[in-house]
Design a protein around this nucleic acid. Structure first.
Lengths: 154, 154
DNA sequence: TATTGTTATACTCTATAACTATA
DNA sequence: TATAGTTATAGAGTATAACAATA
């Protein structure tokens, strides 16, 4: 008889939808500002592609593994590696154990670029989070964990 | 003698950095899943470009205004409008008051596509947020507002 | 036959510089 | 001369399909 689901919940859900939307927009603007400012040597896509290489030096990884970890198609990874290799940030060598495969590894310059990019990102986030009070930070960490679960379950 | 700034705060900040990072990754994966699934008629960039037109029908807006509101360069907007016009989603007409200007407006199809995209996004977010308890939703809305302020002040 | 990587091709999104038409 | 828009050109990031080499 009652007209379906609790309206109280919907109000809270929609408040959250609005807050989430504002948050996404602010995050986007902030990122745009930051990328315009520093103009680092690596784009986000390139950093995502190279990140797994930090954890498997110096052997390197196959191109297909790299593509899969970055969530892109193999030909895309080939092209990106071409560019990064020309710039001296990665090396390509044949896998001695499998003549089909290629092993991609970071050069010292590539590792520097990647670590520098990470440090900048971390510094920006820390600076931002320092604007919150300690108890707000604790609450934010809890809430973000819950939202992460919600994303994964949706 | 004590080695500088309060370590307690740093721990909380770094917990938040970790939680934030996981959240960003989950959001990215979720978006990728959703865009792969529905394969709607409008990309995010196109929706961002057209969004302001919903609020100024039926007159339309100049190309430069549209580009500025979407945060892109004018030639980029020209190209995007070319494609959307070919698909019958927008119209271009000369401004009767200024022979240099064009006025871009949504067609009925364009408006439908835009509203449908918005509805899908809203439905997805609502479904996700329904996974939280009401008190978690309230806490999340508060936290996201604070983070939005932090983004804007950084 | 299956797998690894590459090439060929194409589309979207983005930019800067140079141009046209109008004010 | 200044402004609105377009064209020309370039480059990153993405995909699928077709191919070569190797297992």
């Amino acid at each position: 008889m009652a007209p379906a689901a609790a309206p109280t919940n919907d109000v809270h859900t929609d408040d959250l939808v609005v807050a989430f939307d504002a948050f996404v927009k602010a995050a986007k603007r902030s990122r745009a500002r930051a990328e315009g400012a520093d103009g680092g040597t690596l784009t986000s896509s390139q950093a995502d592609l190279l990140a797994p290489l930090l954890e498997c030096e110096p052997a390197g990884l196959g191109l297909r593994a790299l593509a899969r970890l970055a969530g892109i198609a193999a030909p895309t990874a080939t092209r990106m590696v071409d560019g990064l290799q020309e710039r001296g940030l990665v090396t390509r060598r044949r896998d001695p154990d499998d003549g089909r495969a290629v092993l991609i590894a970071l050069t010292a310059d590539g590792e520097d670029a990647l670590r520098e990019r990470r440090a900048q990102l971390l510094a920006r986030r820390r600076a931002m989070f320092e604007l919150l009070t300690p108890s707000e930070r604790r609450a934010a960490a809890r809430v973000l964990s819950r939202l992460t679960s919600a994303f994964e379950g949706s």
